[in-house]
Design a protein around this nucleic acid. Structure first.
Lengths: 181, 181
DNA sequence: TGCGACATGTAACATGTTACATGATTCT
DNA sequence: AGAATCATGTAACATGTTACATGTCGCA
């Protein structure tokens, strides 16, 4: 369902696009909210044509490009979904799982694992900051599309990095205490 | 892969358990890191027996309970996974998607959507706080298993709630500005 | 005795990823 | 001419959810 809404939303905001273009948009700011590969996108577009949420048009070029456009029914679907309370699909977070399991290791090793985790999140944060600059350079300053999600991506990466750092610190303290014994 | 690790980790920390018990543990603190239903757990346990990560024993009671125990090979799998950098399976976040699409609505409606989002995250935060108290009452104060993940869950819910609130505020400001025009 | 929790398992389905397959256009 | 990118699609597989199917045990 959510993939469908993500595709409709992108079409509603940026205008008609091909499946290929939609796939590439999942590499930009919307990446922080949703993603999909073309192997999932093409079948979904076909389903949406059938159900009337979008229309197709053959671009008529040799490549067989197909341009998709949202219909009013499609726009209604977006509004309904946004107003719904679809939330919390099961959380599945490898970092949190690592935070869980790390206590099975001796504190020194555990701390090293969390320092590595911190580094990964710091790198992710830099990535999001870069993406933000890119988006800001490309879009009008008063166009908030993607801004809110970008802000969330930034906060999330920061939060994860700090959590990993503090967890590492805590484990390092524990290791030291153990040494003194 | 991660489900397998989550199951092994739980067995390693709490000791041998049945599939049913493992399923119930996914409703406690590990819920903030990973989850699974019994429909996924039983087949996975069968696979792990085959590959030697766990052993089974029939409890011998009429209910046909089967108790699973981690093997050394299973423990090794955990350590390897924790030390790996398995991270960032595609982010799929309905809240962020809502933050994306909300700008397609008029500011007043959009603000209402984000206020509802704020309320959902505030409720989630309360839930995690409650879970934390429960865990703290049940486990020894120096047993950090689950504590780090719980802390992350707390931070995440707080971050999401604040983000939703600030986004709502921004949209409310926009609506007001529009009214004055 | 009947209900709810305990207990295991499978089947059907939905979602998501990777690999395979094919061909056009553009740039060097 | 060859490589990279554009462009669409399907098949095989992995993961996750829901529904179906079956039976036990403890308690009111």
């Amino acid at each position: 369902m959510s993939l469908r809404i993500a595709l409709l939303g992108t079409l509603a905001h940026h205008g008609p696009a091909t499946g290929y273009e939609l796939a590439k948009r999942f590499d930009t700011s919307i990446n922080l909210a949703w993603q999909a590969k073309h192997g999932q996108i093409y079948p979904e577009l076909a389903r949406m044509v059938k159900s009337g949420a979008v229309t197709v048009e053959n671009a008529g070029d040799g490549r067989g490009r197909k341009v998709y456009t949202v219909t009013d029914a499609g726009r209604r679907e977006i509004t309904e979904w946004v107003n719904g309370d679809d939330l919390y699909r099961g959380v599945r977070n490898e970092s949190a799982l690592r935070g869980f399991l790390v206590t099975l290791l001796p504190p020194r090793e555990a701390a090293a694992v969390m320092r590595a985790e911190e580094a990964r999140h710091a790198a992710k944060l830099a990535e999001v900051e870069h993406l933000k600059e890119e988006v800001e350079a490309r879009t009008a300053p008063d166009d908030p599309f993607g801004r809110y999600a970008l802000e969330l991506g930034l906060r999330n990466a920061t939060m994860m990095r700090d959590w990993a750092a503090e967890t590492a610190k805590d484990l390092e303290n524990k290791a030291e205490k153990e040494d003194r014994r």
